[in-house]
Structures are given as C-alpha cells and as structure tokens.
C-alpha cells in the first residue's frame, strides 16, 4: 500500500474511531447506571427491619437513653461501623455477633470467642432470642422487640395442640430446613470445657439452615396447600 492511500484511509477511519469512542463511553455509562438500578431494586427488601433493639439500661457516651436500633432479617451487630446494627459503644465488641431470623425466632450467634448475656445468662453459643429478650453487653442492656410479622414467625416455634390433645409433627423438610444449633443455659460459659469445645465448633459464619431448593420446594408446597 502506498503512503498517500494509507494516509487517506487512516484519516477517514479517524472519524470512525471518534464515533466508536463516544459510543463506548455512552454504552458503558448506560450499563453502569442500569446495573446500579437493578442492584438497588434487588437489594431493597433486605433492608427491611423486622425488629428493634431498644436500650433499656446503662449509659454510653454516644448512645442516647432508650435509643432504638433497627434489626434487619439477617446481619451483624457490634460497635464496628461495618456492622448492620451499629451500636457505638466501647463496651460492645467490634463484631459482637450475627443474628438471623428463623422459624423459631431470632437466632443470635456470638462470634470471635465473645459471649453475650441473654436474660441474665451468659452464652458463647448460638441462642434464640424471644420477644422482649434482654440482651446485655457490659453495663448496656437492650430489649428485643420484633415487629408483627416476625412475632408471628417466632410464635410458630410452639406447635399448637390438636383437638385430641396430641401435637402436630412438623413437616419433615421444614425440620431439615431449619436444623439449628440451639444454645441452652447448659452451654453457658460456666463450663470452661464445653465452652472451649463450642468455641472451636463455632466459626464466624453460621451454617445457614436454608437450602435454596428446599426453600423453593416449601414455598411451592405451601402454595399448593393454600389452593
């Protein structure tokens, strides 16, 4: 190819490159905006609060008396800013624990080897919180209040008796679905040995009791039954 021909071709293609450059920027910006909107729409329900932690006792510099902290369906609680329930107090560990709303109530799992006092008993293992449970860290005391929908879910923990006095067996897949490691006073920090064992078993991550397929299956079966 001769130089003049190449120069003419190169100059004419420079208009194409200019147009492509502008189109790439516009398309990239549109993609970024669409992605942001889609993610925002998808994540909105997860920010819904199902209850509140209300400060009922103790004082702290940056926490007002009777202050309420919204509790979402699942998340972490602690004095680190990254926590979903951020309580700015030096008496609370950076990441005190994780909580998950389950069929049987609000499950709280202390993390990092720390303990939490629930209704006056110290736990180092996952513990179920009921409505009005008193949760304490240091001198700070909080009361858990669940909203109506969550309270109904917590109530499902007690299976009502049938007319003949017997109780209904839980649906097997549901039992498998919500297999939880419940904490009991026997697992409290009073027993050092058991506490150590529990600590080793317990990691920061909770084994979520949900299998997505099971959850879908359950939803479908419930819908079928409702029909």
């Amino acid at each position: 190819m001769t130089k003049p021909v190449y120069d003419a071709l190169s100059l004419s293609l420079s208009y194409l490159f200019m147009a492509l450059g502008v189109a790439i920027v516009l398309c990239g910006a549109a993609w970024a905006r669409a992605d942001r909107r889609a993610r925002k729409a998808a994540s909105e329900p997860s920010t819904e609060a199902v209850g509140y932690l209300k400060l009922t006792g103790g004082t702290s510099k940056r926490v007002s008396p009777k202050q309420w902290f919204p509790v979402p369906v699942e998340g972490t609680v602690g004095s680190a800013r990254a926590c979903d329930v951020y309580i700015p107090s030096a008496e609370i560990p950076g990441k005190a624990g994780r909580f998950t709303l389950t069929q049987v109530g609000m499950l709280f799992s202390p993390v990092g080897g720390g303990s939490v006092s629930v209704n006056g008993i110290a736990y180092r293992v996952p513990v179920l919180l009921d409505e009005d449970s008193r949760v304490e860290w240091g001198s700070l005391s909080f009361q858990l209040n669940l909203l109506d929908g969550a309270r109904d879910l917590a109530a499902a923990r007690i299976t009502p008796p049938l007319s003949d006095g017997s109780t209904v067996e839980e649906e097997p897949s549901a039992r498998r679905l919500f297999r939880l490691r419940r904490g009991s006073p026997l697992d409290s920090v009073e027993s050092d040995e058991s506490a150590e064992t529990d600590e080793s078993d317990e990691s920061d991550e909770i084994d979520y009791p949900v299998d997505t397929d099971d959850a879908d299956e359950l939803t479908e079966s419930a819908a079928t039954d409702a029909e």
Partner: peptide, 26 residues
Amino acid sequence: DEQDARAILGQYSAVRSTFIWTTREV
C-alpha cells in the same frame, strides 16, 4: 455477600410459607 443475603431473604419467604402451611393444617 449479596447472594447470601438473597438466600436469607428466600429463607424468610419460605418460613412465612411454612408458617401458613402449619397453621392451616392445625
């Protein structure tokens, strides 16, 4: 993390459905 949160949300829906199913049976 977002996928985990969605799984929890799925659990929340499943719990609600199970609760409806259980109370209807009862």
